[in-house]
């Protein structure tokens, strides 16, 4: 057994009050902001298939593992969210904070840059993908475990809080001047959206590539809740529809369906309406948030000694593509 497997076994044995052996520990690709491992925890009563997500020494974005854990706790059983089992914020035997959730077997995640990733089940997956997001938006965050994170924002402050945060990330991490995203930030500040029609749980990274599907049109797990927070439900919808996640298909948001169809599915599932003017703001914001993440990843790639290829990809190709998207949006707004 490896040192990490020994440490996990020691932790689980202590947490569960019985001897635990760790088998088939294997690191898997699970995003750039956490080290993700799959493992089997074997006890006298059986084998539990688990996923462990541990903070890396340096990460793509600074995320709140407690928020991720509470978001999973909020939506496990409501949508296809994995069951969260353990949150360890001090690190204990594993030295860095981590959490453990039940592993969901048998699904596949598709790269948002792959072409025709969901054929021939796009229509069914579109219903599942945007319907799930609508159900997340419909839930009342005040009644969910995620409310433990603290005071909820006021509906009129959601946009400002998010924009301030991500503009601050750009201020802190920009290595080369970025006039295109700076122009977008100024436009967003001059043209604020109306207050959120309701407060919702915002997944924070709800997009193609962040769900497992069964290959037959069913979503079996929504992943990567690490940026979850309470805010305007249009935030997630704008992010999910960003052209970056369209699998190179300009006509199908998330590589799944038309924008109008996606909005219709979301409105049916959420019981909410998409105000076009408000949504235009959140669409541009999504691209700004994306660029903030890619700028941050370029900095972390450099600061981390150029060791993580995913940080390089995000800070390079993805950042360039995001600039194209923002420039196109600014041109539409200036016309």
């Amino acid at each position: 057994m490896s040192g990490l497997a020994d440490a996990i076994a020691a932790y689980l044995s202590r947490a569960w009050g019985e001897p635990v052996a760790v088998e088939r520990l294997s690191r898997i690709s699970g995003g750039a902001s956490r080290e993700t491992y799959k493992l089997d925890a074997v006890t006298s009563t059986g084998t539990r298939p688990l996923i462990l997500r541990r903070d890396p020494p340096g990460s793509l974005i600074e995320t709140d593992r407690r928020a991720e854990f509470l978001a999973l706790k909020s939506f496990h059983g409501r949508v296809a969210a994995p069951e969260p089992l353990i949150l360890e914020e001090q690190g204990a035997e594993l030295e860095r904070p981590f959490f453990v959730m039940r592993r969901i077997e048998g699904g596949a995640a598709s790269s948002p840059f792959a072409r025709d990733a969901y054929a021939p089940h796009e229509a069914k997956l579109a219903e599942a993908f945007f319907g799930t997001l609508g159900r997340i938006a419909a839930a009342d965050p005040a009644t969910l475990p995620i409310a433990e994170l603290g005071a909820l924002p006021s509906p009129g402050d959601c946009w400002r809080r998010e924009l301030d945060y991500w503009a601050g990330v750009i201020d802190a991490d920009e290595l080369h001047p970025q006039p295109i995203v700076r122009a977008a930030i100024r436009w967003l500040r001059r043209n604020p959206p109306p207050p959120a029609q309701k407060l919702s749980v915002v997944h924070g990274d709800y997009r193609s590539g962040n769900f497992l599907h069964d290959g037959a049109g069913r979503i079996i797990a929504v992943l990567d809740w690490e940026m979850a927070h309470v805010g305007d439900p249009l935030e997630d919808l704008g992010w999910a529809m960003d052209p970056l996640w369209r699998h190179h298909d300009p006509d199908r948001v998330a590589g799944l369906t038309s924008k109008a169809d996606a909005i219709a599915i979301w409105e049916r599932a959420s019981g909410l309406k998409v105000d076009p003017a408000a949504f235009r703001w959140w669409e541009l914001f999504a691209s700004v948030k994306g660029q903030a993440i890619w700028i941050s990843s370029a900095k972390e790639y450099r600061d981390g000694g150029y060791r993580e290829p995913i940080l390089c990809f995000s800070g390079w190709y993805t950042a360039r593509r995001q600039d194209e998207i923002i420039a196109e949006r600014l041109a539409e707004l200036a016309a």
């Binding site: 006039p179 593509r321 600039d323 923002i326 420039a327 041109a331 200036a334």
Partner: peptide
Amino acid sequence: NRAIVSLYGRMAQLRQM
């Protein structure tokens, strides 16, 4: 403003990968 925004489009195209 339109001249600058048009410049942004060309800049993004030049850096396209």
